[in-house]
């Protein structure tokens, strides 16, 4: 089956389309800035940039409703920005400062927001898959109609616990959307070299879970597929799989020289399939926005990102006392149901 394309007449307003442009651009510029701060030594350790994959989270957030949950791996900055977390708090976590979402104790890979229903930020490849199924379980148990977006990559898709989670998710009809962000490389190993049957969404059939492949460079296609998946889950029909074909422009992490693919391959993607350029051209050719409108958005984004970098530099390092906090929760605090 070919990757899902958006239907010809997308059911979105000019305002919505501009919002997708803006949200994707925020992620792109934020990540470029993060890369720059990493280069300056202000961000340390591992830092996995989301550049190229922006349409995935922006499209799915457009399909999500209030109270829906999301959980992902360590390539998480885009997910956090897309679900409305504060760029200042995210950037300050990257620099390990007290103003960060985890007070500087989590770092790039480990951020959370109860308020935005963002459950991390997990560093062990595929661990978030059963965790996401468990979040969906909690909503089913409580009897509401919320759904959980459980994101993982093509690398994680070969881990055994994914299939343990698939089995139980369908067995118990959990409202969980398994989102496979197939960016075609598990660190340096291409899907061709790692996976005998690289159509990951089809594996759901073994468990009775429906799914489909989606063009992840087309935000409208992602949104449309997301809406279908959400409707399926909300209706109590169990889990759904979206394999979203995408591409990361940067290395796996900041220290990846990316010698496993050619510069031409990356450049071709950037030139021909860039998700932000696609929306930009849609906005202009469809006269849904003027050059001036887009320039204003660019300027606004630049200001937000620069402000986040300033905040992240100026926020203090956590007090040394913080080393010893948050190890244990108060013994029997009120229920957090």
């Amino acid at each position: 089956m070919a990757a899902r394309k958006a239907t010809k007449k997308p059911n979105v307003s000019a305002e919505e389309l501009q919002a997708y442009y803006r949200d994707m651009l925020l992620i792109r510029r934020f990540e470029e800035k993060a890369g720059q701060l990493y280069g300056m030594g202000l961000i340390g350790g591992f830092c996995h940039l989301y550049i190229g994959q922006e349409a995935v989270v922006v499209g799915l957030e457009a399909a999500a409703g209030e109270g829906d949950k999301r959980i992902t791996s360590y390539r998480d900055h885009g997910h956090m920005l897309a679900c409305g977390m504060d760029p200042n708090g995210v950037m300050a976590e990257l620099t390990g400062r007290e103003g960060g979402y985890s007070k500087g104790k989590g770092g790039s890979m480990h951020m959370f927001s109860k308020e935005k229903h963002f459950y991390g930020g997990h560093g062990i490849v595929a661990a978030q898959v059963p965790l996401g199924a468990g979040l969906a379980f909690s909503d089913m148990y409580k009897g509401n109609d919320r759904v959980t977006f459980t994101y993982f990559g093509d690398g994680a898709a070969n881990q055994g616990q994914v299939y343990e989670a698939y089995n139980m998710a369908e067995l118990w009809m959990l409202p969980c959307i398994f989102v496979i962000e197939n960016n075609q490389y598990a660190m340096g190993t291409s899907t061709k070299r790692s996976t005998k049957s690289p159509s990951y969404w089809e594996r759901g059939a073994a468990y009775g879970i429906p799914g489909e492949e989606v063009d992840g460079m087309d935000v409208l296609a992602v949104k449309e597929a997301g809406e279908k998946a959400v409707a399926h889950c909300r209706a109590g029909k169990g889990p759904y799989i979206l394999e979203i074909k995408t591409y990361r422009y940067r290395g796996h992490s900041m220290s990846d020289p990316a010698k496993y693919r050619t510069r031409e391959e990356v450049q071709k993607m950037r030139d021909e399939r860039d998700p932000i350029e696609a929306v930009r051209s849609m906005l202009l050719t469809g006269k849904h926005a003027t050059e001036e409108d887009l320039k204003a958005i660019d300027k606004e984004i630049k200001e937000i990102v620069n402000a986040s970098a300033e905040f992240a530099k100026e926020s203090h390092e956590p007090a040394l006392d913080e080393l010893w906090t948050d190890i244990y929760a108060a013994e029997t605090a009120p229920q957090n149901a």
């Binding site: 059963p130 965790l131 468990g134 343990e164 989670a165 139980m168």
Partner: peptide, 27 residues
């Protein structure tokens, strides 16, 4: 059966689902 749940023999998977359920406000 809503509250006493037989799992398949998949310790890795159901332990993860249990932790996720705890993140989601259950005990």
């Amino acid at each position: 059966s809503r509250r006493v749940i037989d799992t398949p023999i998949t310790e890795h998977g159901f332990a993860g689902i249990g932790v996720g359920a705890a993140f989601g406000g259950l005990r």
